[in-house]
């Protein structure tokens, strides 16, 4: 088995949703990303694995502009990522819902990027069509019956699913998930990852950072191993064995 990535021989699931070439980022003297290449196709659930400091989160943050890469190409749906931010959504470990607002209002907020200014001054002004679309998204994550409750009343796993519904309501092509289940109990973690995997089969591109290799192997179609800012392997899940994953984390134990 080779450790080198050979993207050419894989049959892509759909069109390329996210294309990254030569991504580099340096903090002070520490080079966090040393030329990362990555393709994410529509319909794929890809997981980035790697020890703390391997550059996983920095890569995700560079895609959505929370951080600026020093060098590299980032394309979403064939255009520079900055061209249309609504095409990329991100879910976080900390979930980041507005807890005092209703579940429905939180989901609707995903659509702000395409709403005219006057309709986005207050949730009261959200158009009926948007509220209906948001209900559809909530139904998709199985929480339509909780729409009117304050988001903070829901459990952690349910809140994460609301955050995913918000990404759906944004009509994103690519969903990035930065440790989406690190704060959840095992059962809720499985639910959230199963949902993301299911959404991927429906045509979404999902790129996740996970700290649980077992869960990553269970739900993702492809695994990418990052080690000190370098792609160590990029393989369909069945071709990855545990020893390769263990090697990613052992390098850190000095």
């Amino acid at each position: 088995m080779t450790l080198m990535a050979t993207p050419e021989i894989r049959t892509p699931v759909g069109a390329v949703a996210l294309r990254i070439r030569g991504l580099r980022k340096t903090f002070g003297t520490k080079q966090v990303l040393k030329g990362v290449d990555l393709d994410l196709h529509a319909g794929e659930f890809v997981t980035l694995l790697g020890a703390n400091g391997s550059g996983k989160s920095t890569a995700l943050k560079s895609i959505v502009g929370l951080q600026t890469a020093d060098e590299g190409l980032i394309e979403v749906d064939g255009a520079p990522a900055t061209a249309d931010p609504t095409k990329t959504a991100m879910v976080f470990q900390q979930i980041h819902l507005v807890k005092r607002r209703s579940v429905l209002d939180n989901v609707c907020a995903g659509a702000l990027g395409r709403l005219p200014m006057w309709q986005s001054l207050h949730p009261w002004l959200f158009p009926a069509a948007l509220r209906q679309e948001a209900m559809h998204c909530l139904d998709r994550v199985g929480l339509a019956d909780r729409a009117s409750e304050p988001a903070g009343k829901l459990s952690g796993g349910q809140q994460q699913r609301v955050a995913i519904a918000r990404a759906l309501c944004q009509r994103a092509k690519v969903v990035l998930a930065d440790e989406p289940v690190s704060a959840l109990d095992p059962n809720a973690s499985e639910q959230v990852l199963a949902l993301l995997a299911e959404l991927a089969t429906e045509g979404l591109g999902v790129l996740a950072v996970l700290h649980q290799p077992e869960l990553a192997m269970k739900y993702s179609s492809r695994l990418i191993g990052l080690n000190k800012g370098v792609v160590e392997f990029d393989l369909p899940t069945p071709e990855v064995d545990m020893s390769m994953v263990d090697a990613l984390y052992s390098g850190d134990q000095k």
């Binding site: 959505v64 502009g65 929370l66 249309d84 931010p85 609504t86 990329t88 959504a89 991100m90 976080f92 980041h96 507005v98 907020a109 995903g110 702000l112 990027g113 395409r114 709403l115 200014m117 986005s120 001054l121 207050h122 949730p123 955050a163 918000r166 990404a167 944004q170 994103a172």
Partner: peptide
């Protein structure tokens, strides 16, 4: 940050986040 990532402008993020 979530709303900004999704393309919301400054006024929208202030009012909704």
């Amino acid at each position: 940050d979530v709303l900004r990532i999704g393309g919301a402008n400054g006024v929208q993020t202030a009012l909704h986040a």
